[in-house]
Design a protein around this nucleic acid. Structure first.
Length: 426
DNA sequence: TCTGGGGTCCTAGGACCC
DNA sequence: TCTGGGGTCCTAGGACCC
C-alpha cells in the first residue's frame, strides 16, 4: 500500500488570525502588509475579489481604502506565530505524524488510519480546528506531497468540495484534477519553469505528468523531474516529522528611508546582528560564519546602485552577541562604499551547529562561563521586560530613519498581558 | 604544429518555497 | 512619496590537484 498524505493549509491565514479577535473584519476586504508596510502579504477573499495580487505594493492599492472600504493592517507576527502553534497542536492530536511545513501549513501522515474514504473524517477535523482555534483550513489528500498540495488548492477553490478533496480514495478524479491545474500553480514550478514549459506547449499538470523524462531533465533538471515523478504518484519527498536543525539564520530589513550615513547603517547592522545572535541562542546553536550585506534601492533605476555581501569566518563558532556584532561590523566595513543611498541591510549567520558538534581545536578555548551567563541574563531580561531593554551598541533613536514603518498594527491579543481582550458581561 | 584529463572542493547565483 | 523577509537545495564554473 502506498503512503497517504494530507496537506492542511489555513485559509488567508494572517487575515483569519486578525478576524478571530476582530469579528468586525468578517466579510470585509482586508489585507495584511509586509514589514515596513511595503506590500500585501495576505488578502481576504473579498480583497482578492478587488483584484489585489500577492505582494502588491501598498501604494498601488491605497486608493481602495476610500473607494471600496479596504482595510490595511500592519503584520503582527507574534500573534500569527502563537495562533499557528495552536492549530498545529490540534492537528497533531488527530494523526499518527505531522510535518509542520510553514507557519500556516502542515503535511499529515494518514497511513494506517481505518477509513476507506477520508472525506467525512477530514471535514470533521476541519470543524474541530475551526471550533478550537477560530481558524478556517482546507485539506487536500493524495499519495504524494505534490498531489496533496494540488488537491488542497482545488479543495479551497471549489465551493462544493466543502474544504476537502481526497484524491487518494478517489483516483478516478486524478486526471480531471490534473487537467484543471495550470503548471504555474503546482508546488515546485515557479516563473522560470513556467516560461520554459509554456514554450514547449505544456500548460496543465496532466500534460506535465505525461511529458517526456529526457526533455524535463535537460530543461528543468533533476528538481523538475522529481516534481513530475510526484505527479505520477511516485513519492520522492518523504514526510519529515523530525525537523532538521536550521543551517542559517537571517535578520534583514528594508529601511524606512534610504540613508548614505555610515553611522546609520552601522546602527542597523549592530541591531540585526544582536537579533540574529538571540535567534541562534534560542535554537541552541552556534554560528561559524557571519555575513553582512547592504543594498541600495533596486527600484530606483536612475540612482547609482551598489550591493555587496561579505562573509567573515569566526575564529571559533559562537552565539555571543558581542563577538557576532564585531564580525558583522568587520564584514560591513569590507562591503561599504561611500556615496550610495542604502535602502536595505542584513546579517546572516551561517554554518550553524550544535555546540556539542563543534570539533575541539587546541587553540581556541570553549565559550567562557562568564560569557554564557551574560548572554543568559541578557535574553532573560529582554524576554521579561521587552525587546531591547538591554542591548549592545548604545542607544538608538526611536525615530532613526532606517527603522521600520508600521502604521497600523493590532495588539498582542494572546502574548501580551496588557493586550488581552476583555470580555464584558451583560 | 602540437598544448591532457579527470577528480574534488568551493562559491556564487539561480530557482524554488511560504 | 510609497515595491517584504526568511529559508532550502541545486548547478555551473573556477581553482586546484595529480
Amino acid at each position: 500500500m502506498s503512503t497517504i498524505i494530507g496537506l492542511v493549509d489555513c485559509n488567508n491565514f494572517y487575515v483569519s488570525c486578525e478576524r478571530v479577535f476582530r469579528p468586525d473584519l468578517e466579510g470585509k476586504p482586508v489585507v495584511i502588509l509586509s514589514n515596513n508596510d511595503g506590500c500585501a502579504v495576505a488578502r481576504s477573499n473579498e480583497a482578492k475579489a478587488l483584484g489585489i495580487g500577492m505582494a502588491e505594493p501598498a501604494f498601488k492599492i491605497r486608493h481602495l481604502v476610500e473607494e471600496a472600504g479596504l482595510i490595511m493592517l500592519s503584520s503582527n507576527y507574534t500573534l500569527y506565530g502563537d495562533m499557528s502553534a495552536r492549530v498545529m497542536s490540534v492537528l497533531a492530536d488527530h494523526v499518527p505524524a505531522i510535518e509542520v511545513y510553514s507557519i500556516d501549513e502542515s503535511f499529515l501522515l494518514l497511513d494506517g488510519m481505518p477509513m476507506t474514504d477520508f472525506t467525512p473524517w477530514a471535514r470533521e477535523l476541519r470543524e474541530t480546528v475551526r471550533r478550537w482555534t477560530g481558524i478556517p483550513v482546507s485539506i487536500g489528500i493524495a499519495t504524494t506531497k505534490t498531489l496533496a498540495k494540488m488537491a488542497n488548492r482545488l479543495a479551497k477553490k471549489s465551493p462544493k468540495a466543502g474544504g476537502v478533496l481526497d484524491l487518494a480514495s478517489h483516483p478516478e478524479w486524478l486526471d480531471r484534477a490534473l487537467a484543471q491545474t495550470e503548471v504555474k500553480d503546482l508546488w515546485g514550478v515557479g516563473p522560470a519553469f513556467t516560461a520554459k514549459l509554456t514554450v514547449k506547449g505544456i500548460r496543465n499538470a496532466k500534460q506535465l505528468r505525461d511529458a517526456e523524462d529526457g526533455w524535463i531533465r535537460k530543461n528543468l533538471g533533476n528538481v523538475g523531474l522529481r516534481t513530475v515523478m510526484e505527479l505520477r504518484g511516485v513519492a520522492v519527498h518523504d514526510l519529515e516529522s523530525e525537523p532538521e536543525p536550521r543551517q542559517s539564520c537571517c535578520v534583514s530589513r528594508s529601511f524606512g528611508e534610504a540613508t548614505s550615513s555610515r553611522d546609520d547603517v552601522r546602527d542597523a547592522v549592530v541591531t540585526f546582528a544582536g537579533r540574529a545572535a538571540e535567534k541562534v541562542r534560542r535554537s541552541g546553536l552556534v554560528a561559524g560564519v557571519v555575513q553582512a550585506f547592504i543594498a541600495t534601492d533596486r527600484f530606483r533605476h536612475g540612482d547609482p546602485q551598489h550591493s555587496a555581501a561579505v562573509s567573515v569566518k569566526l575564529p571559533s563558532p559562537t552565539d555571543s552577541t558581542p563577538r557576532i556584532i564585531e564580525a558583522a561590523l568587520r564584514a560591513l566595513g569590507a562591503a561599504w562604499k561611500d556615496g550610495f543611498a542604502y535602502r536595505k541591510a542584513g546579517v546572516i549567520l551561517l554554518e550553524l551547529v550544535a555546540p556539542g558538534d563543534v570539533p575541539r581545536d587546541l587553540f581556541s578555548p570553549p565559550a567562557s562561563p562568564k560569557s554564557t551567563a551574560l548572554m543568559g541574563a541578557l535574553d532573560a531580561t529582554n524576554q521579561r521586560f521587552g525587546r531591547d531593554t538591554l542591548r549592545f551598541g548604545g542607544l538608538i533613536a526611536e525615530d532613526a530613519g532606517w527603522k521600520m514603518h508600521q502604521g497600523n498594527k493590532t495588539p498582542g491579543y494572546t502574548t501580551c498581558w496588557a493586550d488581552i481582550p476583555v470580555a464584558k458581561l451583560g
